[in-house]
């Protein structure tokens, strides 16, 4: 038996009868032709406009990508904090220190503790905003005493904060060491086992806050401040921002 015969035998034995199928197919095609013709006409009519729409859509996407990218870049540049300009810092540094100079026998007018709204720092902070100071532990060495303190800036602070201080009886400057220390160098010392320059200013830039301390717009900044042996312990702090000047006076025991 040839392969051709095998083919016919194999498929004919399972193929259904096609009786009536040609008429059925022709009738179905004839019945659906008007509907299909209508669809075809619509398709033909819409083909050109749809092509145009597709081209315009592609063009829009391309332009959108270009313009969108530019807008995003501009917006990022707009919202990214600009580096603190020297003029802003210079303006704050040149503000005169308004801290009082006390004479022997005068009381140290200590600033009362304030509670910060929102229940933050329940033990209280010094100051009345927008920058507060929190007390901390201290360590003394041959040079003097260092305090581990915290500054708290509220959401009102958007730019630079310059903190300066001095002993209100002796006039000795408060020095700062560590990350935020800035301004003129008053000396060097070994603090926490590391050699550190002692600066006379603490400069905080709200545009570059420590990321792990942001709480509801409030930022805490840990810093280290020190006073040399011979200080009275009555310490005045002046905290300057673009829109405010805050004075805080605290009393701390000093190693003598």
């Amino acid at each position: 038996m040839s392969l051709r015969t095998d083919f016919h035998a194999a498929f004919d034995e399972v193929a259904p009868s096609t009786f009536g199928m040609p008429e059925r197919v022709v009738r179905t095609v004839a019945a659906e032709l008007p509907d299909r013709r209508r669809k075809d006409r619509w398709f033909v009519r819409l083909r050109a406009p749809l092509s145009l729409v597709a081209v315009l859509l592609l063009f829009s996407i391309a332009v959108g990508a270009l313009v969108g990218g530019r807008v995003v870049r501009d917006w990022s540049a707009f919202t990214r904090p600009a580096p603190a300009g020297p003029s802003e810092l210079a303006q704050l540094e040149t503000r005169p220190l308004l801290l009082p100079a006390l004479k022997a026998g005068q009381d140290c007018p200590e600033t009362p503790l304030n509670a910060l709204p929102g229940g933050l720092f329940p033990s209280g902070l010094y100051g009345h905003g927008p920058v507060y100071v929190a007390g901390g532990s201290s360590v003394s060495d041959a040079w003097g005493t260092y305090w581990y303190l915290g500054a708290v800036t509220t959401a009102k602070v958007t730019g630079l904060v310059v903190v300066r201080g001095r002993d209100l009886y002796t006039g000795q400057p408060v020095v700062f060491v560590g990350k935020w220390a800035s301004g003129p160098v008053a000396g060097t010392d070994v603090v926490d086992g590391k050699s550190a320059e002692q600066h006379t200013e603490l400069v905080l830039d709200r545009r570059h806050p420590p990321l792990n301390t942001i709480q509801a717009g409030t930022v805490t900044w840990g810093f280290t401040a020190g006073l040399a042996i011979g200080s009275s312990g009555c310490i005045g702090w002046q905290i300057d921002t673009t829109g405010s000047t805050t004075e805080i006076i605290v009393t701390r025991s000093i190693s003598r």
């Binding site: 498929f11 193929a15 259904p16 096609t18 199928m21 040609p22 008429e23 004839a30 013709r37």
Partner: peptide, 28 residues
């Protein structure tokens, strides 16, 4: 002229003899 009724009728005449071989091909 495929838009007229007559052409549909003519097309049916053309199509009818092709249906069976078309089906056999599709079935196989």
């Amino acid at each position: 002229d495929m838009s007229g009724a007559a052409s549909e009728h003519d097309f049916g005449d053309l199509l009818r003899p092709l249906i069976e071989p078309g089906f056999r091909l599709a079935f196989a």
